[in-house]
């Protein structure tokens, strides 16, 4: 049980096994503390309610953050300072926007139109097949640690989505706007799923290092390779599941778009 105790200490000793068994007594023993602890969940409530009501996510997240900070006992100045600090420290996630000038410039010169033309020259190309090839390449390169070979702004908007749309246009003529949007959403999903379930096979990726570091704090030593190898079965499952879904997508596009043609 020694390890169990250590693990709980890392979390700030939130409860012991005693609490686990006699959980119902916990609230009555320390009512004030319990209320404060539950109050800190107000941020989650605001997020869930705000997103469900489809309010502006930016506003929802800001209000949730302010409420959580205030509920946990911070003053207004401290809460706004915490916001400023975390926002400033996470500026690195915005660097990807630096691709906009060159992508915009190339779009102005006809990049998307060219991507469609290239696909039109390949008779065997379908939306599903284009996305299958991208999924496979993205997953394998991510597994080799090459996660920067892709991304929503760099690859999906200028290349992958126009190619996937172009393949459908090529077969079925002009597409209804709903179909276009559905194909674009699938293109974005392919990039995410392929990279998530590829990168963990690479031993130096952030998540593997985080697991290793966390376990070490708890006195457990694991090699990154032991963790990476257990990412392989899920990676294969992700590939099979998503490839099957893309085959289904091709069939449903063919069914919808050819029947519409007959109607017209």
């Amino acid at each position: 049980m020694a390890k169990c105790g250590e693990a709980r200490n890392v979390m700030g000793g939130c409860c012991t096994n005693g609490d686990l068994r006699h959980g119902s007594n916990f609230a009555s023993r320390q009512p004030a503390r319990h209320i404060v602890r539950v109050l800190t969940l107000i941020g989650i409530l605001i997020v869930v309610a705000g997103f469900a009501a489809r309010m502006n996510p930016l506003l929802v997240v800001t209000v949730a953050g302010l409420a959580t900070g205030l509920a946990s006992g911070l003053g207004p100045v401290a809460v706004i300072s915490a916001f400023g600090k975390a926002f400033t420290e996470s500026r690195y996630v915005a660097i990807v926007w630096l691709v906009l000038p060159v992508i915009g410039l190339l779009e102005r010169a006809g990049l998307k139109e060219r991507a469609r033309t290239v696909i039109a020259g390949i008779p065997a190309a379908t939306t599903g097949r284009v996305l299958m090839i991208y999924f496979t390449v993205r997953q394998i390169t991510a597994a080799l640690g090459l996660t920067s070979l892709g991304g929503q702004a760099q690859m999906v908007r200028p290349l992958v989505a126009p190619m996937a749309e172009g393949a459908a246009e090529n077969r079925f003529g002009a597409l209804p706007i709903e179909t276009r949007r559905r194909i674009r959403a699938h293109s974005a999903a392919v990039d995410n799923i392929a990279v998530f379930f590829g990168e963990d096979i690479f031993i130096a990726v952030g998540s593997i290092l985080l697991i290793k570091g966390f376990l070490e704090q708890n006195g457990i030593h694991v090699e990154p390779a032991q963790l990476a190898i257990w990412a392989v079965p899920t990676a294969i499952a992700a590939w099979i599941i998503h490839i099957v879904r893309l085959i289904i997508l091709d069939r449903s596009l063919a069914r919808e778009l050819t029947s519409k043609e007959k109607d017209a």
């Binding site: 602890r37 953050g65 959580t68």
Partner: peptide
């Protein structure tokens, strides 16, 4: 970035 800030406040509040 705002979500990163929210995560920081969630963590600070436990």
């Amino acid at each position: 970035q705002m979500l990163a800030a929210l995560g920081a406040l969630f963590a600070a509040a436990g």
